[in-house]
Design a protein around this nucleic acid. Structure first.
Lengths: 228, 228
DNA sequence: ATTGCAATCAAACGTTCGTTTGAATGCTAA
DNA sequence: TTAGCATTCAAACGAACGTTTGATTGCAAT
């Protein structure tokens, strides 16, 4: 083939520099709020480099996402594989499912030196991202993990209606997302809290478990009759 | 003074039409993703009308927010006033505080005919909004309500460390915000759920109460000694 | 009738946007 | 040494952006 493409990794680091700069800027200012000139300037590359290496701004955004979301998905699936293997036929405990799902995300969010934290902030914001093409590939790249974990949650809570479980998973993702991405936002609102960030994970897991195992609301209990 | 300004309500409806159109477009495409031309076109007004009536795009965004957030703040404070008056000296129950805080928000979110739903979607997204000026006035307009409700929560949970309460309030706001603003986003991920939207409020309150009253994580219990 | 002013309008302002172009650069393989 | 090709670069593209301008409209008070 071509010369530098021997290891399929053209251009020693300008691709990576672009991805890192874009990741940070997208997290900081959003997709529409970040310009190509900001990205290439912060990455110290030529303006045309993004279009040369990635094709377009949208494709760059997608690649920024894919790079780390892929890793996160792998970690989550590995955790679940391990847990299910250890459990054999038995259903997992809800706390185990949560640990498998949110553990890797929180650990990635705690990594402030390799961009993991930046990416998790970006991920949290992107759930509510308006842009159409973002929703599209988010759903695609999330599909397998969400499918496996919802099934695992169903099994771990056999007496809880499935719709309720889906909702609570939704609520939990919201809580985690805010905890990760919106810390400074809340600090503005409630006054700063000079607090040990290492305590975030135990705080969150305790809260999430409490919510997940909360008694069903009356209206739902009454409405559900013949559901499995 | 001037003629039409007799009731301080110039121009029968073009201001309102602009605000409504902007509210929807900002919720749908974000601040940077919405253009003046989209707004004025959807409102069927001249392009210059926004700058004439509001001064700038940022000022328009601020006004879109102020219009409804003011109402939401009033409702929340009224609820709290009523609850505290009924309780006399006694602290409120946590469920009451949550009802006062999230009740008005959820009711506003359920109002799909007067723009309340649209605004709550916008509000949810704006917590994670990158733009600086947005954070600024969000914090200002939220300050009083947050102050009063955190104090009420402190009193309702006297044995829980205050830092923990603030965190859990944060988590709860995340869950609610997602529940309101990201419904379609999650639908993409987990498959649609054809579900009664009237059940959202009981579902949420149950989940939130479970999380709020969850046992403290060990690490926190161990770390806290002399705190009130 | 006429004056005054709030409101609306079409048109243009200068700037910034994402993207494209075509030439220069530098390394690799022949 | 030379040919080939991936990469970088300065420059420019047309389009869209938020905002401003100056004329026009239409009603209310004189």
């Amino acid at each position: 083939m071509s010369q530098a493409a021997a290891d399929n990794r053209n251009s020693p680091d300008t691709r990576e520099r672009i991805l890192d700069a874009a990741e940070w800027l997208f997290a900081e200012h959003g997709f529409d709020g970040t310009s190509m000139r900001q990205i290439t300037s912060q990455a110290s590359v030529n303006l045309a480099a993004v279009n040369y290496h990635f094709g377009s701004k949208e494709a760059l955004f997608h690649e920024v996402f894919h790079r780390r979301l892929n890793q996160l998905n792998l970690l989550r699936l590995q955790e679940l594989d391990k847990l299910e293997q250890e459990a054999g036929e038995a259903p997992l405990k809800p706390s185990q499912v949560l640990e498998g799902f949110f553990g890797p995300a929180l650990e990635m969010a705690a990594d402030t030196t390799h961009g993991g934290h930046t990416f998790m902030r970006l991920l949290g914001r992107t759930y509510t991202e308006p842009a159409e093409f973002v929703r599209k590939f988010m759903a695609e790249e999330y599909a397998e993990v969400m499918e496996r974990y919802t099934v695992a949650l169903y099994r771990s809570l056999p007496d809880v209606p499935r719709a309720e479980i889906v909702w609570r998973l939704h609520f939990m993702m919201g809580a985690v997302s805010y905890a990760i991405s919106g810390i400074d936002a809340l600090a503005l609102v409630t006054g700063r809290f000079d607090d040990d960030p290492a305590l975030l994970k135990p705080r969150l897991t305790s809260f999430l478990l409490g919510g997940l195992r909360a008694p069903l609301p009356e209206q739902v209990t009454n409405a559900v009759k013949g559901e499995k």
